[in-house]
Design a protein around this nucleic acid. Structure first.
Lengths: 234, 234
DNA sequence: CGCACCTTTGAGCTCGGTCAAGGGGCGTGG
DNA sequence: CCACGCCCCTTGACCGAGCTCAAAGGTGCG
């Protein structure tokens, strides 16, 4: 297990390509932090004091609107980094809330440690920039989808993305290996749980999916792609 | 004029707080680039070879969807930076297209120069991160608006933002000092030019605005804020 | 003064949100 | 092991914000 954790961190997008000598210091200065299902690593607006690398479980980044509505930005899998903003002046707040979808374990580094490490190996700050760049692209992608795509397409895209990062191949197709509710999918695609329910059922009737309580199996990924790309007329 | 340019760059969000000695090198290694109205500094997807600091004019960052639809991400004013992604491996493409709204002049630095400069003063890379962080917050804000706000609110927010960064106080109120069409506003708020036209006219009837061809004057900013924040019932 | 482009206005329609009601799986406690 | 209750999911009815399309009026520039 210990060994696995180190391997995950070595391949994480925050510390990949770090000099092996420095890497031992990275591991030494890490603080383990575990959060159980539905718990929080941090809340939107909290001062950004730590950067995290997830080593076990699933963590979702969410934003909560003034009126209590919620939108889900992304779901992190082991090896991914969140809170990398901590490298900046800690007066900057986290831009989103990090909530555990299942019992999860992460390693954390505080701002001061992080800066020491960056000084020893500047490639870390390049990694942070790459991270942020990827995040920006993703946000732009989603924004474009919100403006130009119909709900159906957005839901299809979300399912495909979930399958790509948390999919497990089984006999019937690709199982999305997460306890995910219709509400969750709605929050990710910017719609309501009713519309998601209707859409998924329609797709099940069409043989594209197989659905159950907190469970989605994609039987025909190619069909979903067609929908996502609007290759199928309304 | 020369003097002004230097001052703008010194206060730009890319090179602020740079060591004065290094700053002269910054200026020495800059490449001026001017683009006339409707011209492009770079297109989305082009390899990110240069970072720019706008010194004169207005530049908008846009994204074009597969079917030709267009969304406007933001409008830059002098002192602002775009293309800061160039610090990363240049294989990364620009995430958006930079188009001049009016005749514009910018200073440019290529990836290699930028990296030299960063090595001499690492605070530049912190600046880039702050830039990216600000950009991320902005994108998240917009995304939240797209999911939860009605069109009316989004249009109000766009007008307020434009007024904040390009507003000029005149007798009748705050003039948005840009040649901006209904179509432009639609692209910024994620709606259609028809809806924008109707909405602006309604507001003019209500005394909130004064509108004309490619011209908007805000007479009652506070009223707009009320709409943006949904303080006014439908 | 003509043409290109920006803008307005109307009519119709549809997507998807809202609300209400009820079905069904699963874990917990008796 | 059963049953109760919680939570997740489905389905129907309704409706309204905003998109689409068509047509025509302004306005400013060359």
């Amino acid at each position: 297990m210990e060994k696995d954790v180190e391997e995950i961190v070595r391949q994480s997008n925050l510390f990949k390509d770090v000099d092996p000598d420095i890497f031992t210091q990275v591991m030494d200065s890490s603080l383990p932090r575990s959060v159980e299902e539905d718990g929080y690593f941090f809340m939107q607006g909290d001062p950004a004091t730590h950067a995290y690398v997830l080593v076990k479980g699933r963590v979702k980044m969410i934003q909560i609107t003034p009126n209590g509505q919620q939108i889900t930005m992304r779901i992190m899998t082991p090896g991914q980094t969140y809170g990398g903003i901590a490298l900046l002046n800690p007066q900057a707040g986290y831009p989103a809330t990090a909530q555990a979808v299942e019992d999860s374990i992460a390693l954390a580094w505080d701002t001061a440690r992080l800066r020491e490490l960056v000084e020893k190996d500047p490639s870390i700050s390049l990694n942070v920039m790459e991270l942020m760049h990827g995040y920006i692209s993703e946000l732009q992608e989603r924004q474009k989808a919100l403006v130009t795509d119909r709900v159906e397409q957005r839901i299809a895209r979300i399912l495909l993305k979930l399958a790509a990062q948390s999919g497990r191949k089984i006999d019937e197709g690709v199982l999305i290996d997460l306890p995910i509710t219709r509400q969750d999918i709605a929050e990710m695609s910017g719609t309501t749980l009713f519309t998601v329910s209707r859409t998924l059922n329609e797709w099940e009737r069409g043989g594209l999916l197989e659905i159950g309580r907190e469970r989605v199996v994609i039987r025909d990924p190619h069909g979903l792609v067609s929908i996502a790309d609007e290759l199928v007329e309304r």
